[in-house]
Design a protein around this nucleic acid. Structure first.
Length: 114
RNA sequence: CCAGACGGUUGGACGGUCGCUGGCGGGUUCACCCCCGCGAGAGGAAAGUCCGGGCUCCACGGAAACACGGUGCCGGCUAACGGCCGGCGGGGGCGACCCCAGGGACAGUGCCACAGAAAACAAACCGCCUCCUGGCUUGCCAGAGGUAAGGGUGAAACGGUGCGGUAAGAGCGCACCGCCUCGCCGGUAACGGCCGAGGGCAUGGAAAACCCCACCGGGAGCAAAACCGAAUAGGGGCGGCCGGCGCCAGGGUGCAAACUCUGGGCGCGAAGCGGUUUCCGGCUCGCCGCCCGGGUUGGUUGCUUGAGGUUCGCGGCAACGCGCGCCCUAGAUGAAUGACCGUCCAGCGCUCACGCGCGGACAGAACCCGGCUUACAGACCGUCUGGAUAU
RNA sequence: GGACCCGUAGCUCAGCUGGAUAGAGCGUUGCCCUCCGAAGGCAAAGGUCGCGCGUUCGAAUCGCGCCGGGUCCG
């Protein structure tokens, strides 16, 4: 397995709100993707969100971990400098097969940034 | 072997690849960043936030009373508790064992629907009775009384059974049982015993109605709090009241004495101080009212070694305590503890079987402890009870 | 992390304090009225009082423990 570092994180509430208002949006099975150009910097930065609708704390944490791992394995091979992404967990995020989660993420990223 | 009771342990195992968080060491660097290596990284409930503490701030420390809230058989354990242990009393079970907010109802107030005569000071509806009076149809009516055995109502009706007794009855008397008071004995106590004495019996329920008694309790909470950075910054304005007394300091007028100004300092006084009041001590400070305006993005500390865990020994029925030795066991902050693969172990389904497929219970630390409560697929161990079988 | 509030008919709420009938409005259904409908009138159905345990003769109401929903605090 190739060595892939995890991408930088979005951590400020204001950054999440900016992506929610101006970002391009795509919903696939397992996640919802929001994307926009960063205001500054040329690094790829990714944020993860799981609301209380997903379930209890165990289910929310599990969904965010799978999204993070899928992003690490899927996004490394693409040219995504200066892009900010937000991945929102859905009900099925913790249950779908990990390979299809990765495939759906890659499809959504290609479609949104096309 | 079957059924059951109680207590405890555990909460999938091993390996590989790639990641995340923080620690240590090394490389590089002015310092970060970055790279390499090493070892660490969720729970018995981390949960609910129902109690008790530590810690921090409110500068609140002590005493009393009141108010409010909580606890409530007895003894012990504990830092403390509404927790735990051991007893007592009551209830359930054949039993092992389980359950109980379990102080006080002659301190007081209120309540007990409907039914019933009557629901708590007692009283008498249907009845029963006639030593009394009157009437007559000679066994009934009326009056006057006696009575509470029987009927009926109710969740509950002012001791129970039997004998005597009586007009009928009644603890009216007696025996047994129950109850109350006093004394004695056992026990630290709750309580128990029984003997002894006395009382013929007055004392219904409910305090998870108010209440009384005893004991306990200041409030807020790590989003506490401190520091760094940023910001003019923690202030500014107006009005009213007092601007009191003494001393000191500074300024003004004056040759001087003296007068005057300054919320400048000290003491007295006055005011304020966490539910209220009073007292003691202490602390703060011109008092009161109105108005204006600003800010907390961030970083560090708090932050993990503590009423800590554990082997052995001793004391104790136990909870627990003491002593010696050993161990260090998460510190994140849009918040790490993961993803995938392989082998095995439980489990479920199909199958005669081999085997195949599915697939890990409840659930995620957030300052830290002690408890309680709630959720939980299962697996294992120990003690005991009832029954069956065999010897 | 902390502080608090509310669960009663399909919906919105009374009743709880102080225990003994579970009610009101809207809605639903049926009938009347009308040529038909609306409005109106009459009637009916519909509630494990969020769940469990307890106190009591008796619990929507009182006590305790849970479950669900919601609000506030930088």
């Amino acid at each position: 397995m190739p060595r892939l570092k995890a991408p930088k994180r979005l951590q400020k509430r204001a950054e999440f709100l900016r992506l929610a208002s101006i970002g391009r949006k795509k919903a696939v099975s397992g996640l919802v993707l929001q994307a926009a150009r960063a205001v500054a910097g040329d690094e790829l930065r990714v944020g993860y969100t799981a609301t209380k609708k997903i379930g209890n704390a165990v289910a929310r944490n599990r969904a965010k971990r799978r999204l993070r791992e899928a992003a690490r394995l899927t996004l490394a091979g693409r040219d995504l400098r200066g892009v900010e992404l937000v991945l929102i967990a859905r009900h099925e995020t913790g249950r779908v097969k990990f390979s299809s989660l990765c495939a759906n993420l890659g499809r959504a990223v290609d479609e949104v940034l096309a």
